[in-house]
Design a protein around this nucleic acid. Structure first.
Lengths: 135, 135
DNA sequence: CCGTATCCCCTCCGATACTG
DNA sequence: CAGTATCGGAGGGGATACGG
């Protein structure tokens, strides 16, 4: 997970996507973004409570990663007791739109059939097009 | 990774997204989809070679997962030597569009600045809007 | 050629404890 | 309240070897 597998892929774009995926694919990241998007601004423990089950360690870690990626901004109020507020950046909000699209796509395809029984198609001897013959 | 953390999230949609994320977030999944999308149909070892670095074990595993999710179809030709061809389903192609969008988004925001120096904003005592007062 | 079985490592995550 | 330090367990991924 720490490094991109084969960076020299044909179309280039995917590399960057994978990069983002490495961050977003980690546990909680997505839920953090979601909570941030629905509440606009949120404090550390508030977020922690909303994600009940997460530990401070991991939450802090995820938040740091997201900040490094420019998806989350952190605002520190030098008070006592300390207050820190997290919020999404504009770019993260753009991302959220894409995620919503993804969600819509998921819903569109997962509701109808039960998506079981893969049962690979077995072609008959008379195949329609054998592009690659055996080596 | 095996189970969804807190399924009872406010907006629901995310759960399904997380589900897909669990599959797509795994290593190689995205690259597999990419290769499949650029070649339309591909054989096992051909794919393996294209993803140089992946092991048969993992490739087979990913392929099975993607098949279970209805993103990939498998076509077995009962010949000798055996031939198996993988290809994307229509739904996966829809997904590809979204991924491309994501790629575009990544490019749009990652090229300009180096994305370093998080340096959280420190608010002055006189904050502009304290929505949440201390508990 | 197309996979599965097995082992091992290494990272990630959660729990606990502690500081500013 | 907002985190960091450290530890231990669990699981994913890679290498190797073997079967259909």
């Amino acid at each position: 997970m720490s490094e991109t597998p084969s960076t020299e892929v044909k179309h280039g774009a995917t590399c960057a996507v994978i990069d983002i995926w490495e961050v977003l694919g980690k546990r909680w990241s997505l839920l953090i973004i979601k909570n941030l998007s629905t509440k606009e601004t949120i404090r550390f423990n508030e977020l922690k409570r909303a994600l009940s089950g997460i530990s401070s360690t991991v939450l802090s870690e995820r938040l740091l990663e997201l900040e490094r990626e420019g998806l989350v901004t952190k605002k520190i109020y030098p008070e006592v007791p300390p207050r820190v507020e997290y919020s999404l950046t504009a770019q993260a909000k753009e991302l959220e739109v894409i995620i919503k699209e993804l969600a819509r796509w998921v819903g569109r395809w997962k509701r109808p059939q039960s998506v079981a029984a893969p049962a690979a198609t077995v072609a008959k001897k008379e195949e329609q097009s054998s592009t690659t013959t055996a080596s």
